[in-house]
């Protein structure tokens, strides 16, 4: 059922803007390059943070949320979310003309744990706006419906150079 659900979401997702931001904004870390689960070890990113170095992962998360006015930690990537909730959150954020930084936590269990302990939040997706933890998909959808998200993102879109 879960698989059917997410593939249904996939069809409706439009990610052009997110895709470019994802690449421009995130590739420099090269720790979350999308890869197939059956990719041979030789081809996996080599810059993974060593196990146990939770401090540097915490720094990485801190840096992410500082440098990206809108940052989402999700299952899959904006172009191809691997969970209905992540897909929903991405689609909500796409309604606003803002660049979104994204990381795929399925790529890296260490990162997943680091994000969870950073926000004290047990599930994904997790959304940060201007460094502030916002919540998951239920909250972002609620804020969207209530008009709070528009308010929050107003100066984010204003601050962006036109693309």
């Amino acid at each position: 059922m879960a698989a059917a659900l997410s593939s249904r979401f996939l069809k409706t997702v439009r990610c052009n803007r997110l895709a470019s931001v994802y690449q421009n904004g995130m590739m420099r870390y090269s720790s979350s390059v999308p890869s197939d689960s059956d990719t041979h070890d030789d081809f996996k990113p080599t810059q993974k943070v060593a196990p146990g170095s939770t401090d540097s992962l915490k720094d990485l998360v801190e840096n992410d949320v500082k440098e990206n006015p809108v940052m989402i930690y999700m299952k899959g990537i904006p172009e191809a979310p691997q969970c209905g909730f992540s897909s929903l959150a991405v689609r909500v954020l796409q309604q606003y003309n803002v660049p979104v930084g994204a990381r795929n936590i399925l790529e890296d269990p260490e990162l997943k744990n680091a994000v969870k302990s950073f926000s004290h939040w047990p599930t994904f997706p997790q959304i940060f706006i201007k460094g502030e933890f916002i919540g998951g998909s239920d909250i972002i959808l609620n804020m969207h419906k209530e008009g709070e998200l528009e308010e929050k993102l107003k100066d984010v879109s204003a601050n962006q150079k036109s693309q």
Partner: peptide, 17 residues
């Protein structure tokens, strides 16, 4: 706030989560 409310629900289900 909604975020705090969700945190309370998450905390109540800490074991189950």
């Amino acid at each position: 706030r909604l975020l705090e409310r969700h945190r309370m629900v998450n905390a109540a289900l800490e074991e189950e989560m």
